[in-house]
Computed example of a mutant assay.
Amino acid sequence: MTDPAEVLDLARRRGVMIATAESCTGGLIAGRLTDVPGSSDAVDRGFITYSNAAKVEMLGIRPQTLEAHGAVSEEIAAEMAAGALARSQAGVAVAVTGIAGPGGSERKPEGRVCFGIADARGVRTETVDFGPRGRAAVRAATVEHALALLKAALA
């Protein structure tokens, strides 16, 4: 389990702040980070962009990308992370978009989450299929993976 305090300490050592762009987690990543006392010197802001309209308005996601790939895609995760970085004072941003469940489709099954990390080195993405564990478990696994990605990006 990734300790959010460790992630914050790494950000402080690097002299950068963190931003989050969250869809399926609805702010849980920012919540885990800000549960740590004193986190305000390492967390800049979180964007909760549950709807496609919010993704476009708050993060600058291109409607063409949404139309071509859908909200649950690495392309959207990349644009979300880049948008959060550009629209904040952060030096690193993590983004998540996925199907927490219940439901999903054959093409985009329950438990599929796309992640994006943006920093001075660019944007990196990955997709993880957590499986149909149930909404709460998928969201918890997503938060944990996002914290691990932040830790790796800041190490």
Score class of each variant (00 low, 15 high):
Glu22Leu: 00
Val128Asp: 02
Arg14Gln: 15
Val123Pro: 02
Glu74Leu: 10
Val92Leu: 10
Arg124Ile: 13
Val7Ala: 13
Ala5His: 10
Gly60Ile: 10
Val143Pro: 04
Arg124Gly: 14
Gly131Asn: 08
Pro4Gln: 11
Gly104Ile: 11
Arg135Ile: 13
Lys108Tyr: 07
Gly26Pro: 08
Glu110Thr: 09
Ile48Glu: 05
Ala81Met: 10
Val96Cys: 02
Leu85Ser: 09
Cys24Tyr: 00
Ala5Glu: 14
Ala146Gln: 05
Ala90His: 07
Val138Cys: 06
Leu10Cys: 12
Leu10Gly: 15
Arg45Val: 08
Leu10Thr: 13
Gly38Lys: 03
Glu79His: 08
Asn52Leu: 00
Gly104Phe: 11
Gly131Glu: 06
Pro4Ala: 02
Thr127Pro: 03
Thr2His: 00
Cys24Asp: 03
Lys55Phe: 05
Val94Arg: 05
Ser40Tyr: 12
Ala137Trp: 01
Leu33Trp: 10
Ala5Trp: 07
Val16Pro: 13
Val92Ser: 09
Met17Asp: 11
Ile48Leu: 03
Leu33Arg: 04
Gly134Pro: 01
Met17His: 08
Cys24Ser: 10
Asp129Ile: 06
Ala93Tyr: 06
Ser39Asn: 06
Met1Asn: 10
Ser40Glu: 10
Lys108Ala: 01
Ala21Trp: 05
Glu6Tyr: 09
Gly131Ala: 07
Leu147His: 07
Ala136Thr: 15
Gly46Val: 08
Ala30Leu: 07
Ala19Tyr: 05
Arg139His: 01
Gly60His: 05
Ile29Met: 01
Glu22His: 03
Asp3Ile: 15
Lys151Cys: 13
Val128Thr: 15
Ala136Phe: 09
Arg112Ala: 13
Met58Ala: 12
Ser73Ile: 10
Arg12His: 11
Leu66Asn: 06
Thr25Phe: 00
Gly131Tyr: 01
Ala148Cys: 08
Ala136Met: 08
Ile76Arg: 00
Glu22Thr: 01
Val128Asn: 01
Leu149Met: 12
His69Asn: 07
Arg13Gln: 15
Gly104Trp: 10
Gly103Val: 14
Ala95Arg: 05
Ala93Trp: 12
Glu57Thr: 14
Val16Leu: 11
Gly46Tyr: 01
Ala118Glu: 08
Ala42Gln: 08
Ala93Ser: 13
Arg124Cys: 04
Arg45Gly: 09
Ala42Tyr: 09
Leu154Phe: 04
Glu67Lys: 11
Met80Gly: 02
Glu22Gln: 03
Ala82Ser: 12
Thr142Glu: 03
